[in-house]
Design a protein around this nucleic acid. Structure first.
Lengths: 159, 159
DNA sequence: CCCCCGACTGAACACATTGCTCAGCAAAAA
DNA sequence: TTTTTGCTGAGCAATGTGTTCAGTCGGGGG
């Protein structure tokens, strides 16, 4: 779970050029191939690197509309709602949160009109009391991890 | 931008076993290697597959706390706020949205106490009028794309 | 103070995979 | 019918992978 500077460089390099191989990496980083391989194995078994799944763009798949919905759940229905939302493909992500709402989910849809269908699908379930939806217009900062990795590596180094 | 059944199977297979190669894929899918290669190239230049960056777990990096903050922005300060938030490593994602709030961002922190620091960092900026934060407790549905891909493939097939 | 251990290096090897190109073929489009 | 498009199966050189090994280095424990 500790992450040193080399780990950080490996992750950043991997994030920038994912198709790169272990050998090429070792060349760029100026360390032996075995070292990179060992670090990568460690990072993966640590769970720091979960995997290398393809990053699919919903917009390119025909789902250009993204929205976040805050849901209020009837007491004791949490598990049912979770199960229900898990069956809806347009629900990309679901969190239970503190605060007035109880759950927050990320939705996608084929159009604004289609979003209505998705919301009905989501909300049309017994345990959900109320839903507030915010449609995403722009995404100035797409999901990113590099700055955090660099921060973590720097923090560890400073120790 | 159309995605057929084979494309769908490729993406799903890739999502489940990312380390798999083109050759092994072609074996599993029962098609020629060149076909898989061509499809992959097409999916990538289409932008359907953005890349294969490593999926890093912030929790394993020492940032186990996730939160969503809804921000209200002073008129005309949007660009400045965006630029400011982009410099904060703990801001993993930022969206501008419709609705009462104006922006929604995903934050991580080293602890609940540390979250205060992050929020101060985020909110301690001139253009931000108000912030409402929801701390994530559970994540019943982690960010996923497979069901949507299957849906999209099925939809296309039906045509 | 010395020794052991863990981490890194550089090298070697067999083997699998990649990138590329080709001709043949079938079905859809023109 | 002719053309175009996409898939197949094959071959080739080049490269990368998984693995193992002995040697080096530095720090921590004995």
């Amino acid at each position: 779970m500790a992450i040193d500077h080399l780990d950080g460089r490996i992750i950043v390099l991997l994030a920038r050029e994912p198709r790169i191989g272990v050998l090429e990496m070792s060349r760029r980083l100026g360390v032996a191939r075995g070292t990179v391989q060992a670090r990568l194995d460690r990072l993966q078994s640590n769970g720091v690197i979960r995997g290398f799944g393809p990053q699919v763009d919903p917009a390119a798949l025909g789902y250009p509309v993204t929205a976040f919905a805050t849901l209020q759940i009837r007491q004791g229905q949490g598990a049912d709602v979770r199960a229900h939302l898990a069956t809806v493909p347009e629900v990309l992500e679901l969190h239970t949160t503190t605060g007035s709402g109880d759950m927050l989910c990320r939705l996608v849809a084929r159009s604004n009109a289609d979003l209505q269908r998705v919301i009905d699908l989501v909300v049309g379930f017994d345990g959900i009391v109320r839903a507030a939806t915010a449609i995403v217009m722009e995404n100035p900062v797409p999901l990113r991890i590099i700055p955090l990795v660099e921060q973590a590596a720097a923090d560890a180094e400073r120790t």
